[in-house]
Nucleic acid binder design. Sequence first.
DNA 1: CTAGTATTGATAATGATTATCAATAACACT
DNA 2: AGTGTTATTGATAATCATTATCAATACTAG
Lengths: 150, 150
Amino acid sequence: MQEKYCSWEEKLKSSGGRLTTPRKIIFYILSSTPKHLSAEDIYFIIHKKNPKVGLTTIYRTLDVLVKIGFLNKFDFGDGHSRYELIEAPNKQHHHHLICRKCSKILDYTDFIEEEIKLVKATEKALSRKYKFEIKDHVFQFYGVCDKCKK
Amino acid sequence: MQEKYCSWEEKLKSSGGRLTTPRKIIFYILSSTPKHLSAEDIYFIIHKKNPKVGLTTIYRTLDVLVKIGFLNKFDFGDGHSRYELIEAPNKQHHHHLICRKCSKILDYTDFIEEEIKLVKATEKALSRKYKFEIKDHVFQFYGVCDKCKK
DNA sequence: CTAGTATTGATAATGATTATCAATAACACT
DNA sequence: AGTGTTATTGATAATCATTATCAATACTAG
Ligand SMILES: [Mn+2]
Ligand SMILES: [Mn+2]
Ligand SMILES: [Zn+2]
Ligand SMILES: [Zn+2]
């Protein structure tokens, strides 16, 4: 029952995928930023050094990374899907504060302990009651950031 | 400092809006269902009895209702924004379970007491720490529903 | 090195949501 | 009830993020 931890490269290959140059670049970009990048964000970053990589490939690679469980896909309501690696240096389980005016996104980890307790209990109860197998959750707070309050 | 409760009609008018036939129909449809309707869902429902009402009007009305604070807009990841009245008969503050396979959405109210406590504490702490004025929140659990487990 | 096939990238297509704008309908005021 | 002002409507076209297509390319097992 013990899952073996493995790198995204291993997971990719073990699922029949190939380790290609665009995929390595895209993963590297994702692992080098604390931001929540959109496909287009990544496209512009890549384009400076690797103008050949197309936007389509970026969308496809993001899908792959989400599918093998190394990437989270978020909708913060600004019209672009945004992505963030699940496991990364200096990154732990966290949630988001989103400014409704400027779309700034803030990671926070306050109350994560309490939250995890609540989530565990909720997952257990909901699984039993609704026969729903819960895989993950998204908590987001919306409001107005410091600067946008004027 | 006491907010006066008022109906959506009052709120609409007090903000300079007009109480029109399409708006009344759309509100009525929203208040008569426990489902989470998309603009297109509403369009098809309306179309049977009022074929004149256009899809554009539906999008605009939904925006208005969100803006005056009577309607929640959700993204459950199926490519359509979905809407649910905030105040409605037989409806209380709740969150959602979403099936990743069939997109079924389930309202749940379990642990709402504990959750409200956590939310209150979180809001207070985050407001102080990040100078972020929190207006609302979205909690969602994702997984696989009973039927989709086969 | 080679065969087999997953992946790429240029391009076109899709589809939900928005913008435009002339025609219409609320409504405040007689 | 009638009128003038102006918010709203609805038909239509436009936008724009994301997907589908498909021939060319590049991984990788053997
Ligand atoms: Mn984050
Ligand atoms: Mn609901
Ligand atoms: Zn802001
Ligand atoms: Zn399901």
